Computed example of a mutant assay.
Amino acid sequence: MTYAISVELTTTPKEKPSHHKQAFGTVFTDHMFILDYDASKGWHDPRVVPYQPIELDPAAKVFHYGQTVFEGLKAYLTEDQRILMFRPNKNIQRLNLSNQRLSIPTLDEGLVMEALKQLVLVDRDWIPSEPGTSLYIRPFVIATEPVLGVAPSLQYKFMIILSVVGSYYAEGINPVSIYVEPKYVRAVAGGVGNAKTAGNYAAGLKAQDEATLKGYSQVLWLDGVHRKYIEEVGSMNVFFKIGDKVITPALNGSILDGVTRNSVIQLLQHWNIPVEERALSIDEIVEAHRSGLLTEAFGTGTAAVISPIGSLEWQEEQLVIGEGATGELSKRVYDAITGIQLGNVEDPFGWTVELPLS
C-alpha cells in the first residue's frame, strides 16, 4: 500500500553536534512527523515538517488525565553506509497495544513504518557514524482535546522526533549497583505496567531519587502484591544467570514486553542456552547468591542494550555478583545484538530493516 506523506523541508538547518560527546536525548534533528486525529476524520494529514514547538490548549487532556503513550527505537549507519533500523515492527506493534490499553485509537502500522522511514531518510545526514552512536527515534501519541472531563479524548496527535545520541558506554561497559526497592512499586497486574505510557515512568522517579541519594545507580522493582517477586530494574527488563540457566520474570501484566528482552531470549535459545520466563523471588536470588549459583545479572533496554549488574542491596545486605565485573554472557549478548544493529554480523532473525537510499 502506498501512503501519501507530505514533506516540508526546513529553510534553517541546525548545526550538527559532536556526536561522541552528546548526552542522551538533548539534541534533535531538523524535522519531525505529525499525524492528527479527530473522531469525525480518524487519523489524517500525515506530514514531515521542520522541527518546531507545538501549540496546545491548557485544557488538553494529556495534561490532566495522562492519556499518552510512546516508543523508543534506533537507526544506525553501517560501515558501508547503509541505514538500518532495529526491529521497528515490534515497536509499532507495541505502540498499538499501548494505545488500546489507554483507549487511544490504534494506528495503521504500515503508515507508521512509512513515516519512520521517510523521516529518518529526510534527516539521514544526522545519523552519526562514530562507534556506539545512533539516531534515537521517539514516536508518541498525546491526547489534545481541550475538555476537562475524565473520558477518552476525541482528538490526538501522533508525532515522531529524532535525537542524535552518543555512546552509552563511552568508557566501556561498567556494572552498576542496584538498590532493591522495599517500599515503592512501579506497577501492578491489571494496571498499565505493560503499556509504555508516561505515568509508569513518573511513578518511578521518587524511588530513583532516593536510591541515587544512597549511592545506587538504579532500583530493582518488586511486585506490588506480594512485594517479593522481581519485575524490572529501573526502566529495563532484567535477567539472572543461575547455574546453567538464564531466568527473566514472566510477562504478567505489569511488566513491559521489551524489544531487547525478546531479542535476548531469542539469542539465548539460538545458542541453546536454557532460558526460563517465570516468577522469580528476591529470596531465590539471595539463596542463589549464597550458594554461588548466581553468576551474572543484567538489565536490557533500547538505550543501553545490556546493563550489567555488579551488586544488589537487599535488607542491608550487599550481594556482589560475579565479583562485580561484567560477565561473559552479558558481554556476548551485548556484542551479538550491537553487531546485528550495526550490520557487522549476520542477522539470522531478520531483525534489521534497511532503508532505501535511492
Results as ranks from 00 to 15, higher is better:
residue 149 G to T: 05
residue 217 S to N: 15
residue 121 L to T: 11
residue 266 Q to Y: 05
residue 146 P to E: 03
residue 251 L to G: 08
residue 338 T to R: 12
residue 103 S to Y: 02
residue 212 T to K: 15
residue 320 V to E: 08
residue 163 S to L: 07
residue 73 L to S: 01
residue 158 F to G: 05
residue 131 P to M: 07
residue 293 L to S: 15
residue 347 D to I: 12
residue 313 E to L: 03
residue 139 P to T: 04
residue 217 S to I: 01
residue 26 T to R: 13
residue 212 T to A: 15
residue 3 Y to A: 11
residue 235 S to F: 12
residue 5 I to Y: 09
residue 147 V to I: 14
residue 318 Q to L: 03
residue 148 L to T: 10
residue 56 L to V: 04
residue 268 L to S: 13
residue 305 V to G: 07
residue 333 V to P: 07
residue 331 K to M: 14
residue 110 G to N: 11
residue 171 E to Q: 14
residue 123 D to T: 11
residue 150 V to L: 14
residue 153 S to D: 03
residue 270 H to R: 14
residue 12 T to K: 13
residue 314 W to R: 01
residue 225 V to A: 04
residue 346 E to I: 11
residue 174 N to F: 00
residue 341 Q to R: 04
residue 8 E to D: 15
residue 142 I to S: 04
residue 268 L to I: 13
residue 178 I to E: 07
residue 287 E to K: 14
residue 10 T to Y: 07
residue 285 I to S: 05
residue 196 K to E: 01
residue 210 E to C: 00
residue 356 P to S: 13
residue 249 P to M: 10
residue 137 I to E: 01
residue 258 G to A: 10
residue 90 K to F: 09
residue 187 A to S: 14
residue 146 P to S: 05
residue 87 R to I: 03
residue 338 T to Y: 09
residue 220 L to F: 03
residue 334 Y to Q: 06
residue 201 Y to G: 09
residue 70 F to T: 03
residue 292 G to R: 01
residue 325 A to I: 01
residue 73 L to P: 02
residue 265 I to Q: 11
residue 191 G to C: 02
